[in-house]
Simulated assay, not measured.
Amino acid sequence: MLTGLGLVTTIEASGRVISQKGRAFQPASLVVERGETITIVNDDSDLLHHLYVEADRFNFDSGDQMPGSRTAITFTESGSFQVLCGIHPKMKLAVRVN
């Protein structure tokens, strides 16, 4: 079990942590380098979230995220992307990847 915890710590240490709370991403935008990993945490104690990115050059789908869960996304392509929640359509995270 310690290996799994170490992996989460490594992901967080090498990337940025974004909170999902109150049906919003905090922060709502960020700039990362290509290949960088961000970790998105469902900080809502009673809500499911479902992350996805649909773009010509980059796609991602987290599936349903339970409260307290963490999802890592590694941006392998440069460009501007929107991370959206499939359950809460007003939730938007703008990510520019250099």
Rank of each mutant, 00 (worst) to 15 (best):
K21L: 14
T39R: 09
A24N: 13
K21Y: 13
E33D: 14
L47F: 11
P27E: 10
T39Y: 02
V41T: 13
V31F: 01
L51M: 06
Q26E: 13
R23C: 11
T37C: 04
L30A: 07
L51T: 05
I18N: 08
V53G: 02
A24S: 15
V41F: 13
V53S: 02
D43G: 07
L47D: 14
L30M: 15
F58M: 04
A55W: 05
F25Q: 11
K21H: 13
F60L: 01
Q20P: 00
T37K: 08
K21E: 15
Q26A: 10
N42Y: 11
I40E: 07
G22N: 15
R57S: 14
H49K: 06
E36F: 04
D44F: 01
S45R: 11
D44E: 13
K21P: 00
D46W: 10
F60T: 01
V41Q: 09
A55I: 06
T39V: 14
A28H: 11
Y52T: 03
A28P: 05
H49P: 00
I18T: 08
G22Y: 07
L51E: 05
S62V: 02
P27D: 11
F60M: 02
L47M: 14
E36K: 12
R57G: 01
E54I: 08
S62D: 05
T37Q: 11
I18K: 09
D44R: 04
A55T: 12
F60Y: 07
S45H: 06
T37A: 13
T39G: 04
D56L: 06
S62H: 05
A28K: 13
N59A: 10
I40K: 07
L47K: 13
S45N: 09
T39K: 02
A24E: 14
N42K: 06
D56W: 01
L47R: 12
R34E: 10
E54L: 12
N42F: 11
G22V: 06
Q26V: 12
S29V: 00
L48S: 07
Q20R: 08
G22M: 05
V41G: 01
E36G: 00
E36W: 01
E54W: 02
F60P: 00
D56C: 00
D61G: 09
S45K: 12
Q26F: 06
F58D: 02
S29A: 14
I40P: 09
H49Y: 14
S29E: 14
E33P: 00
S45W: 01
A24H: 12
I38K: 10
V32Q: 03
D56V: 06
L48C: 01
H50F: 07
T39S: 14
V32C: 05
L48F: 14
I38Y: 09
F25W: 08
N42I: 12
I18D: 08
H49I: 00
D43S: 13
F60N: 01
E33Y: 04
V41Y: 12
E33C: 03
H50C: 08
D61L: 03
E54F: 04
S45C: 00
E33H: 10
I18H: 10
E33R: 14
F60V: 02
E54Y: 06
F58C: 03
H49G: 11
D46C: 02
A24M: 12
S62F: 04
S62W: 04
D44H: 05
Q20M: 15
K21W: 08
